[in-house]
Design a binder for these strands. Structure first.
Lengths: 116, 116
DNA sequence: GTGGGTGGTTACCCTGAGGTGAGCGAGCAC
DNA sequence: GTGCTCGCTCACCTCAGGGTAACCACCCAC
């Protein structure tokens, strides 16, 4: 999205929305957020199995971006075979909470056609 | 996003999130939502001017999709020159409200680097 | 006749997110 | 020595969303 030049928006929320949208903008990021909320401290392979359909490449890049965004914490143990554990940061948990109303809206909405 | 096959998520919110993400997934949709919230009943040209940078094509297609999604109402007056007015539906207003926590999260978050 | 404004539509191109498949380095089981 | 696991990385390709620009039908002002 790059910088959104929200038009009028005096104290508007659009300015915050774009930040959030950048963070959750990836195809699997909300799922990842949710998975890490449900299962704290998950390993790469476990996450892959939790999100059937995601590829290693995308999982790795999403995790990396979310780590850079400060919503995911990555802990690497120097063992062999390698072990890496991912968990939500406090900010990530707050983000997850902030998504609740949106999820509720999605669930509560009237029957939508448009799916075809 | 198509159908998200949320992994474990028993009563999880991911199932609602994907619905919401489909609706607000367009590049300008949250801005449009916000613009229509701030200025109810706007015409096509006014919206275009409110969102500097958006093209007619994208504005038209976004409005059409949001209308199909039931968040935007389109009223066409049979005049000349043609006049069409767009406004939020109740559901659109609720969606906007549901975005507030997300916007608050975006505004309140600690300094992010990664912006480049 | 020319230009401006109305609300769009159409055809085309381009970028980037995401998918595909292969490989790597280390140790352990066999 | 072969193959398995683990956590990635790399090169390549696809495809859809979005940008560009021209055009339509209508009327008015100049």
């Amino acid at each position: 999205m790059t910088t959104l030049n929200r038009p009028g928006a005096p104290d508007g929320h659009a300015c915050g929305i774009d930040t959030a949208m950048e963070v959750i903008g990836g195809k699997w990021k909300v799922l990842l957020l949710w998975a890490l909320h449900e299962h704290p401290c998950r390993r790469f392979g476990e996450l892959r199995r939790l999100l059937p359909g995601i590829t290693e490449k995308v999982l790795a890049s999403h995790l990396r971006e979310m780590e850079a965004d400060g919503v995911v914490r990555r802990v690497s143990y120097d063992e062999v075979p390698p072990r890496v554990e991912y968990s939500l940061t406090e900010d990530g948990t707050r983000l997850n909470d902030a998504l609740r109303p949106l999820a509720a809206w999605g669930r509560a909405r009237p029957a939508v056609r448009r799916s075809g």
